[in-house]
Design a protein around this nucleic acid. Structure first.
Lengths: 342, 342
DNA sequence: AAAATTTATGCAACCGATTGCAATTGTGTA
DNA sequence: TACACAATTGCAATCGGTTGCATAAATTTT
């Protein structure tokens, strides 16, 4: 059929006006007569005109695109965050480019370069687990392209950060276990150079301390939280010890679920022998037997906050305090895996 | 610092050659002298030159971008598919734009429009659960922009489809339950206008038939597979019936997990009273008690197939049979939720 | 009715890379 | 030395919108 793209020049010709007028009309420019605008819009619709973003971006030097780099998309949390971001961003007339680092610094670096070359107007990042060097963000900083970090943030980079109070969440989780009578609480967590893991760990230690339980380094395990890593840590180490822990606080729900499965296979009762608390309130935490006590925090809300802050900044309304930290609330959801007392 | 973008003109000026030569040099054009190329590349690297995609796309009328629209990203399956696609596509020098329809036709429509306006070179789609009208893809078809459907495909649209043999998978799952002694197998599934659900249902019926079990319409439930829907169907209906089913084949693992939880709460034993088979081999199927028998299929491989077919087509190498259907293999993974016999 | 505004529209340059065709330089051959 | 031919390089137009400035037309003010 009509395979030819319609341009503003085509519209201009048919309407006997200039391309300038068409361009302005389509943008609802105040100087253009209402009737002319209507004629333009009508014809545009009729002919199936679509603006050429490349021409427009080239001229305007702005892409109206926001990049997002996350470790993985396969959790309820991430997909909620994304959904929140997308909602706000679309309403504001921006587009999203999403990519996954798959928890690797190298992939994160190439993704960042791609985003840079795509000239995103802003970048939203949650760091890969093993990212140490942050120099790939330098190009953005040098060009003053705003970056917002969320959840796994880069503490040394000056920019807005949106996250939960991981210290407090870690404290709450641990304190809950203590209140259920646990004395030897195992903590399994990720790379401690990531704020989320470090802060939860600090909260864990503080809770122990406040309840006069001495921190035992043997009860602190840090690994990459894959199924394999959890298996190794528990089967080859923890379960072979003379004294077993009586509580477990692990920083994500799928790991908590794996641990629960392993413990049950080893003949331990949950929560009587070992009480378990996870993190994130992922779907998986609800279907295990018993269901897993966890920390809930609203991904959707977080996504919306992130997007609003970024858009306000880009539209030049609120760059007052762009380098601030936003802390969102969390709550402990108590389920069977930890509840020993009514 | 240097906030100014470097263009080929800047390079040309410093090297005392024309922009044409710089452009060709950067593309490794054979007519350009090797020494000249080296000088160009060296200076480009030194000054931090980056190509302006908008100018390039504008001129070339090609974006090197591929759009992906999926229902949701929060499953292991989807995130594997995406990862497979991304790998192939990046190697071929294309970029990805990913968006979620959140299972709604309306969102799918606006996403499609956005993709169209972003002038993607090709589109990869898995349909939302409630999509009936497919007219939003007409613009692509009219302009001859290739669309590949996967998993949830549009049967009425002529284009490549990549999926598993859902009929066979449904047959295998059902037959397995029959072999475990089930006679009254409940089938809970999604919208039957989606091929995946319809075909699995057909497989289910065929297996029943082949084993001389009459199909009972009361044992077929179709809903949107949310947690709420599963809960309603089981608690308010199935569990109130005089005769309970002795088997359940449900077309995704999280629903299987919810069902399993509900049945256990109702005091039923799994698999003795009701044997359960899910679908997808998602993480969740491994951590329930008992673990859930399920159908596994390789998302990564599927993603790679999809991307290869599309890229070959775009690069004009294999458009011979672009409107074909690719079927990938699946396997039944037997776990505790269904295994009654050794 | 002339002057001052306001309202609408157009001209032309520009954004940065690509490419058909022509031009220049260099090498080999008669 | 002259000519054919290959190897390099450049000119200039093009892709489709956007925008500062100028101009023309309509309306208001004096």
């Amino acid at each position: 059929m009509q395979d030819k793209e319609i341009t503003i020049y085509d519209l201009a010709e048919r309407l006997n006006v200039s391309a300038t007028t068409v361009s302005r009309g389509l943008q609802d420019h105040p100087a253009i007569n209402k009737k002319t605008k209507k004629r333009i819009f009508d014809l545009a619709a009729e002919l199936g005109y679509r603006s050429n973003k490349f021409a427009s971006n080239l001229r305007k030097q702005k892409t109206n695109t926001i990049g997002v780099i996350v470790p993985r998309l396969n959790s309820l949390f991430m997909s909620s965050v994304l959904s929140g971001i997308e909602k706000i961003v679309n309403n504001a007339g921006y587009n999203l480019i999403i990519s996954q680092s798959f928890e690797h610094e190298s992939k994160e670096k190439t993704n960042t370069t791609t985003m840079f070359n795509s000239r995103v107007d802003g970048l939203i990042v949650s760091l890969a687990s093993d990212t140490e060097d942050l120099s790939h963000f330098d190009t953005f900083i040098r060009k003053n392209i705003p970056i917002i970090f969320f959840d796994r943030v880069a503490e040394s980079i000056q920019s807005t950060k949106v996250l939960i109070d991981n210290f407090k969440a870690g404290y709450k989780a641990t304190e809950h276990l203590i209140q259920q009578g646990c004395k030897k609480i195992l903590h399994i967590t990720g790379n401690p150079s990531r704020n989320v893991y470090k802060d939860r760990f600090e909260g864990y230690k503080k809770a122990l301390n406040d309840h006069h339980i001495e921190f035992d380094p043997a009860l602190y395990i840090s690994n990459d939280l894959t199924e394999q890593a959890i298996q190794d840590a528990l089967v080859n180490d923890v379960l072979k010890r003379d004294t077993l822990p009586d509580g477990l606080f692990v920083t994500n729900d799928s790991s908590a679920a794996f641990a629960l499965t392993i413990f049950k296979e080893a003949g331990l009762r949950i929560p009587e022998d070992i009480a378990i608390v996870g993190f994130n309130n992922d779907l998986i935490s609800k279907v295990t037997e018993p269901a897993i006590t966890t920390i809930n925090y609203p991904g959707n809300e977080m996504g919306e906050s992130i997007a609003r802050i970024l858009i306000n900044h880009l539209d030049g309304e609120g760059d007052l305090s762009f380098t601030s930290t936003v802390l969102l609330n969390t709550e402990l959801i108590v389920r069977g895996s930890s509840q020993r007392k009514k």
